[in-house]
Every structure is written in C-alpha cells, then in structure tokens.
Nucleic acid binder design. Structure first.
Lengths: 94, 94
DNA sequence: TTGACATGCAAGTGACGGCTTGCATATAGT
DNA sequence: ACTATATGCAAGCCGTCACTTGCATGTCAA
C-alpha cells in the first residue's frame, strides 16, 4: 500500500494515470506526446519510462508487450483498497 | 490535490489517520502514545507534531483548540476527491 | 506568580526521489 | 544483414523530506 501513495505523490504520474484512465492501451511514446502536448510536460522519454515503472510496481498500471511496443493499462484496484481502508463520509444533501 | 498524496505517502502519517478514523478528537500526546504502543513507532513528539501539520495542510485532518490541548479530527473529503478523479472499476461478480 | 503541562518554531543532518546522460537490447521492415 | 524504431539499464546530480535537538510560547492549578 505504501507504493501506491508514493506513486501517486508525483504530479507527472497522476497525469499519466489521467491519460490511461481516459483510454487504455497506450504506448510509451504516445504518453510522452500526450503529456507534452496537452499538459506541457517537458520531461524526457526516460523520465516517463521510470514513472511508468513506478506506477506498474505499485499495481496502478499493467502492461502487455506486443512486438516492439509495450502497451499500458490503468488498474483501479489499488485505489479501491484506499477507500476500503478509510471510510468516506457521506455528503450531506439537504 | 498534490498535498494529499504527499501526506499519505508516509507510513507514520497513514497510521495516524487510522487512529483518528477509529475515533476522533485525539490530542498530540494521545496519538504519540497510541503509535508507540500499538504500532511500535519510536518517533519523538516533535516528529509526530510535524506529521500532523502535514496532514492538516492537506485537509485530511482538522483541529480544534480547547485550553492548552489541541484535538485532531479526520476529514475524508480529500479521499473522496481521489475517487472522483479516477473511476473505480466494479468487481466482477459472475 | 511560580511551576508543570501541552504545543510551536527553527536550524541542521542523512537519506530518498526525480531527472538527465549515455549506452545497451530487441523487434520490424527493406 | 542493415537500419530505424521502441524500450531498458545504470550512474550521477540536485532538491526535497523525515527526523532530531534546543529553545520559545501559551495554559491551567496552587
């Protein structure tokens, strides 16, 4: 569980999760392009690769190799574990 | 939103949240005792105080002064913001 | 007021994290 | 085989973070 929060404590990694949640099966280069274009992230490809590795070892991202490409998928199960640990108070609706 | 994950990326702070979620309105010394007793946390009082400050500035903990004591309360709203950002997949039940 | 209790502030240290740089590996196409 | 494509590995730099130490502030009771 520690890995999940460590992974999510970085803004770039949260943006990556946003992109994967908006449409799975993206490759490393696609993510680099999306981050640079839509969010102005200027990191290099290696930096993004390391971010993806962190997300994967936290269980937030699963991967699948096809040929020379590696596709990344968002997995929400670790987030479900969070809301299982601490109760979420109901929003009062008057 | 960044502050929330930064705050939760530390194990001691997560344990503090556990204690507050299990029963609100605890004081600094109470939390120190609980962490030392139940979880074997050997940090000093000042360390715990700094942790509480981080949790408070992240919105996960609210405080209320009464006399010379300061009581801490768990607030789950930032966690609700997390599950609003990323969709949680339904558990498959065949 | 004096003393004991509960918390706050600030500087210094050691370690971890994110980023870059450079090279290496593997696959697809011609 | 050769080249371009797509990713992987490793070392190094620099900033941030958690923790400690020491002193200061504020509050209640006698």
């Amino acid at each position: 569980m520690a890995d999940v929060f460590k992974a999510l404590s970085d803004e770039t990694r949260r943006l990556i999760l946003d992109e994967l949640a908006a449409g799975d099966g993206k490759t490393l280069f696609e993510i680099c392009s999306l981050l640079a274009g839509k969010h102005g992230v200027g990191s290099t490809r290696q930096a993004i690769s390391q971010h993806l590795a962190v997300l994967e070892s936290a269980g937030l991202v699963t991967t699948e190799r096809r040929g020379r490409s590696k596709f990344h998928f968002f997995d929400s199960e670790p987030l479900a574990a969070i809301i299982r640990r601490w109760p979420i108070a109901e929003k009062g609706m008057p």
